[in-house]
Design a binder for these strands. Structure first.
Lengths: 329, 329
DNA sequence: CTGTTAGCGCGTTCAG
DNA sequence: CTGAACGCGCTAACAG
C-alpha cells in the first residue's frame, strides 16, 4: 500500500505538502504541485479515505439511505438511477458513500442510528423514498445531527435541503395535455400512496387543473400498484372519460383494465421510465432525470457540508409520450 | 462524540484496556471487564470503526458487490434478501460493509477497482450475481489481493471461498418429484442465462435425471425472463408433457402460455420465492434460504480474513409447492 | 510557499 | 493482568 509519505519522498517534499496538493489547497507553487502530481501518477497513489476521514474534521463521508420499492415491480430501474447518479457524483467530488437501505434501519431508534452513523464518521445523509410514516427518520432529520438532503419530500431546516421536481405542475401539465388532446371532462385520478409526499403534491396539481377546466375529478389511491390501478379502472373507468395515473406502472394497469373492458379511455402516467409495457398503448408521461436529480442532491449535500444553508432545489422535467409495446420484460 | 478515552476515564482504566474488552481479548480479568462494559453501556459508546480500520492491520471492512437483476422483474426481493442477510450477519460480527453494485464498476479495470478498494481499507469481498462474462471481476479474484466469497459460482482458490446450494441435485430433485407426481417422459427444460454459472449446474441435474428415467430432454435458454419462457412454451409446450423451469418467474411465464394455449402441462420452477403469481397454478419449486446463504457467506469471509483457506460451502434447500394465486403484485 | 509538529480514535506491542 | 508508548495514513495548525 503506497502512502502519502511514499509520494512525499518520491517527490522530495513533505507529506503535508502532498496533502495540500491532492486536496487542492490554494497555497502551493505550480512547480511543487506538478512534482507532486507526477509522483502521484507514477506511484499510482490513491489516498486512503479512511485515514482522511479520521483526520479531517471537515470530512465528507456520506450515507445514502434508500427505500427500495420492493413491493412495486419494475421500479428498481428508477432506484438504480437514483443510486448511480448519487454515487457517480460522489466519486467526482471525492466523497465516500455508504449505501443503506430502509430495511436495515427497521426497529432501530434515531439514537441508535445516530450512534451508528457517527461511528462511521458520517456527516451527511441523502434520503430517498421517505414517506410520512417513517417517523424515526423524521426524528433523525429534526435532531439536526447531520446534514441532510431529502429527495422528493418537502423537508427543510438549517441543515436540511430538499431536491425534487415540481410535482404539482408536472401532474398539472401532463394531465392538461392529455385532456386537451382528447377532450374529456370527467377525470379518474389514480393517485399514489396515501402516506407519500409526492402523492399530495400531485393531487394539488389535479385539483388546480380541475378547477381551471371545470372538470369532475374522481380521486382514488392506487398505492403505485399496477394491480390496484387495474382494479380501480375496472370499477370506475367507464364512468369517467380520462384516466390520469400518478405512475406509468399504474397507467399500464389502467390500460390493461380498459383492454379487458374493451373500451377506450385516454390514459396518462408519470415518471417516463421504460417500464415493462403492454398492449400498444400510447401514454403521456412526465419524464424526470432521476440520476440527474440524485447527482444534484449529492452536490447540494456537498455545499451543505461546506457551510451552505438548507434550501429547496427544484429540478426540471419534460413531457413525453411513450408507446408501450407488447413486451412483458 | 464519546471516544474510547472517555470510556476509559469513566471506568478508571486505560484506553488500551477498553480496547481489549470490546475486542474480546482473552487476558482481561472478569472484574475490569465488567467495569468497562458498564461504562460502555452508560456512555452509549460505539467504537469508531473508521479509526479501528485505520489502526488495525487485521481489520474487517468488507465490500458486498451485487449484480442486481434489473432486467428481470420481481427478482429484487431475492436481491434484498441476499443483501440484508449479509449485512445483518456483518453487524453481528462487527464487520463494516460497503455495498457496491456492478454498474458502478462498469468500465473500470481490475487495477482501478483494486486501488479504490484499498483506498477504502477493504480486505474482503462478497460477490453475488457473477456471470461468466464478468471478466474484470474474474481478474480481481484471480489476482488474490483480497479475500473473496463468491455466491453461486464455483470459483475457488487460496483466498476465495464459494457458497451455494447444490443446484444440480436441487434441479434433479424438483424435476423428478414433478415427473413422478404427474407421469411424463418428454421434458421441456427452460434453462437460465447462457453465461450464468448455475444454469449449467442445473442442466447437469436435468441430464442426469433424463438418463436415469429415460426421458426425452428438450433444453432451451429462457434467460430467466418470463416473456422468453412464455414464448418457448408457446412454441414447444405442446410437444412435451412436462415443463421444468430454472426459475419461478419463468414457470409463471410458462403457465401463462399454457393458459393461452388452453392446455395443461405440469410445471415446476426454482427459487421458492413469493413472486407475483398468476392463474391459480400449483408449481413445485426449490426453496433456498437466500438470507441464510449470504449470512453464511459473510461468516465464511470472516473465517477467511482470520486465516482460513478458501473452500466450497454447500447450503441446504427444500422442495416446496407453491400455489400461485390470481395476484399481479 | 513549505516543512515541522500534533493530533484524529483506535489497536497493538511490551514492560511492569 | 494492566497501562504506557507508539503508529496507522492523513489533515491542520503553526513556524519558518
Amino acid at each position: 500500500m503506497v502512502s502519502i509519505k511514499d509520494v512525499a519522498r518520491h517527490a522530495g517534499v513533505a507529506a503535508s505538502t502532498v496533502s495540500k496538493v491532492i486536496n487542492h489547497y490554494p497555497n502551493v507553487s505550480r512547480a511543487t504541485k506538478e512534482k507532486v502530481e507526477k509522483a502521484v501518477k507514477e506511484l499510482n497513489f490513491v489516498p486512503n479515505s479512511v485515514a482522511a476521514a479520521l483526520s479531517s474534521k471537515h470530512t465528507s463521508r456520506v450515507a445514502l439511505i434508500v427505500n427500495l420499492n420492493v413491493e412495486a415491480q419494475a421500479v428498481d430501474e428508477i432506484d438504480m438511477r437514483y443510486i448511480s447518479g448519487a454515487i457517480n457524483k460522489a466519486m467526482e467530488l471525492g466523497i465516500d458513500v455508504i449505501t443503506l437501505f430502509f430495511f436495515m434501519l427497521r426497529g432501530k431508534s434515531s439514537e441508535e442510528i445516530t450512534r451508528y452513523l457517527k461511528s462511521q464518521s458520517i456527516t451527511g445523509i441523502i434520503i430517498y423514498g421517505l414517506s410520512k410514516e417513517d417517523y424515526v427518520l423524521h426524528d433523525l432529520i429534526a435532531e439536526q445531527n447531520f446534514k441532510f438532503v431529502v429527495i422528493d419530500a418537502p423537508l427543510m431546516n438549517e441543515q436540511t435541503s430538499c431536491v425534487s421536481i415540481d410535482h404539482t405542475s408536472g401532474q398539472y401539465d401532463v394531465a392538461k395535455k392529455t385532456i386537451l388532446e382528447n377532450e374529456g371532462d370527467k377525470v379518474l385520478y389514480i393517485a399514489g400512496k396515501k402516506n407519500g409526499y409526492v402523492t399530495f403534491e400531485r393531487i394539488d396539481g389535479m385539483k388546480k387543473l380541475a378547477e381551471e377546466m371545470d372538470l369532475k375529478l374522481d380521486i382514488r389511491f392506487g398505492e403505485f400498484s399496477e394491480l390496484e390501478a387495474r382494479k380501480i379502472t375496472l370499477e370506475h373507468g367507464e364512468e369517467n372519460n380520462i384516466i390520469v395515473c400518478a405512475s406509468d406502472l399504474m397507467a399500464i394497469g389502467a390500460a390493461k383494465a380498459l383492454n379487458e373492458m374493451d373500451i377506450f379511455r385516454p390514459v396518462c402516467g408519470f415518471d417516463g421510465a421504460m417500464l415493462m409495457g403492454y398492449v400498444g398503448w400510447k401514454i403521456n408521461s412526465v419524464r424526470q432525470d432521476f440520476s440527474g436529480l440524485s447527482a444534484k442532491a449529492m452536490e447540494e449535500l456537498y455545499t451543505l457540508l461546506n457551510g451552505g444553508k438548507g434550501r429547496m432545489v427544484c429540478m426540471p422535467y419534460t413531457l413525453v409520450q411513450i408507446d408501450y409495446m407488447d413486451v412483458l420484460i
